[in-house]
Nucleic acid binder design. Sequence first.
DNA 1: CGCAATCAGGACCAAGGCCGTCCTGATTGC
DNA 2: GCAATCAGGACGGCCTTGGTCCTGATTGCG
Lengths: 150, 150
Amino acid sequence: MFRLSKLSDYAVVVLSELGRTADGAVRNASGLATATGIAEPTVAKVLKLLASGGLVTSQRGAYGGYRLARPLSAIPIADVIAAIEGPIALTACVDGHVGSCEVECSCPVRGRWDPVNSAIRRALSEITLADMACPAWALPATARLAEPVV
Amino acid sequence: MFRLSKLSDYAVVVLSELGRTADGAVRNASGLATATGIAEPTVAKVLKLLASGGLVTSQRGAYGGYRLARPLSAIPIADVIAAIEGPIALTACVDGHVGSCEVECSCPVRGRWDPVNSAIRRALSEITLADMACPAWALPATARLAEPVV
DNA sequence: CGCAATCAGGACCAAGGCCGTCCTGATTGC
DNA sequence: GCAATCAGGACGGCCTTGGTCCTGATTGCG
């Protein structure tokens, strides 16, 4: 099924919400949680991962919070996935664990996933968060919460 | 980590091995298992999935077996993944389960993963199993088993 | 200077999916 | 009729993931 982590999905939501913030202002975790409808501890976890990945910058202390390190149009989706899930690679054979593959000797595809990996990386690098934006986000968050877009 | 299923990895190995078979001949599951070094029940499972996906054709009964439905150069890696893991889609929101996302109403990215999904599908459709082939496979399987290519 | 708010980092547990195996039945050649 | 082989599904163990919580560090305010 090629499933993407749920955390990455949340990360896109949170980053998009952060993109709706005025320049220079910061948003704290609980505010972002209520704005997005995601549980607060989860939002906090996502924000920490994004901060350590350099996608957002944090301001500690009272009245602290987070802000985007770059505009949404400068954040390829590949960076988000890499920040949440680690390096983008399709198979377990390439993650540096030599010897972790028990059929290593006879595995004829050893290292042959590289072109596939790079193709995926390239595809994910060409799409930015701005490309995933939606015009409806110009509305205040409360309006979106009140009227489901089903 | 964007992890691909191990079964898909095995599928590529098995299909590549099948590609080394003379035209018209069939290979049974146990022979493919010894040639690839993968456990036989697992190979059988992979072959069944590939057969139902139309990538290999099966011959039942005594002296039966499997053969490729198309040459390796006509099998994009996307087909292999689709046969093993189902439709290629990154997020859980797009698999037709409306209502499965508990924050559906306020999820601003709803359906916005589509461009990402199609980009990945396109990337995976442009790489065939022949592109993942390795010259060393021209050697007999026993030679590869005897001399690890580490 | 003390306090409250906020982020940083990790530990922890439950749930679900995946992997590998096995069993039974259907089909085919000898 | 028998043996070989594929078809399809059931099942249990292991690992990853998701979500929560706790403790400590940092910063602004009164």
